[in-house]
């Protein structure tokens, strides 16, 4: 009885795994085939002629280098800005007592209820007003202020024992030194989770870059790749090579940071 059940479990999980990673493997196999073999019916599973040249061709046709560089810069700006702003606010909400604190916190939390599309036209108008459309800065600015990050770090700061700041105040420590020398080091794992989730979100964001920037060389990879779909869809083996180029680095990073990503998502339940 028990072994029959466990066989069922493994059959289900194996089927799930095949459905999930099968398409990625098919993407790779197509990307190393010749054009004629890629569209052959019935298809070959493994390429008869194995060739890397599709990667070279698509990298010449499409500015992956620039798009990766842009993505890296935008992610770095958003993560750095958000960590500073959210940790300062999280510290104030969790550790300092001042009139109006709870009311302000409730109002800030209420913003989580509003779908992001509400803000897109005004954000676009602000960027036009600042004359920074079609720049990388414009991609980063709205992402700097993240209510979720404030909430997450407030929760982390709440778990730190109160005696620590009391002792520091007795020793004559100012609030800024308590924040930077005592609180931040103790909140490291929360900060890492927030940094990773923010990177992932910025990495995947599609609509905002499409709205605020026009030229391909000012896009993040996520939005830039949408141009690739529009332009070169005939040569599937090349497009799939482009797909692998934009998927593989993150998969490798993910394998390194898996624990943090999984924990962060489990704790937050943020949209993936």
């Amino acid at each position: 009885m028990r072994s029959k059940n466990s066989a069922l479990i493994y059959i289900f999980l194996l089927a799930g795994t095949i459905i999930t990673i099968g398409p990625f493997i098919w993407m790779f196999l197509t990307s190393v085939k010749t054009y004629n073999e890629a569209i052959k019916t019935p298809p070959t599973l493994f390429p008869e002629i194995f060739q890397w040249v599709n990667y070279k061709i698509i990298m010449e046709k499409f500015p992956f280098g620039i798009l990766y560089f842009n993505t890296f810069l935008v992610v770095a700006m958003v993560v750095a800005g958000q960590l500073v702003i959210s940790s300062m606010a999280g510290y104030a909400f969790a550790r300092l007592r001042f009139p109006g604190r709870n009311v302000i916190f409730m109002i800030v939390l209420g913003l989580l209820m509003i779908p992001g599309q509400i803000f897109l036209i005004p954000h676009y108008k602000i960027m036009v007003g600042l004359k920074i459309t079609n720049t990388l800065i414009a991609l980063a600015i709205p992402g700097l202020f993240n209510v979720f990050g404030v909430f997450l770090l407030r929760q982390v700061f709440l778990t730190i024992p109160k005696e620590l700041d009391e002792a520091a105040i007795v020793d004559g420590c100012g609030y800024f030194r308590i924040y930077s020398l005592i609180m931040l080091p103790l909140a490291k794992s929360g900060m890492v989770s927030l940094a990773i989730l923010t990177s992932l979100w910025t990495w995947k964001n599609l609509m905002w870059p499409l709205i605020v920037n026009r030229s391909l060389t000012k896009m993040t990879l996520s939005a830039g790749l949408a141009f690739l779909i529009g332009e070169h869809t005939t040569y599937y083996e090349q497009v799939m090579a482009g797909g692998i180029i934009s998927v593989l680095p993150v998969i490798i990073l993910f394998l390194f940071f898996q624990r943090h990503i999984v924990e962060g998502i489990a704790v937050s339940g943020i949209k993936g």
Partner: peptide, 20 residues
């Protein structure tokens, strides 16, 4: 790990893949 991969893949790459 295997079944988590789509969660770290950008939508445009998923779109490319599924169109194919």
């Amino acid at each position: 790990t295997a079944m988590f991969l789509p969660a770290v893949t950008m939508p445009a790459a998923i779109g490319l893949l599924w169109r194919w």
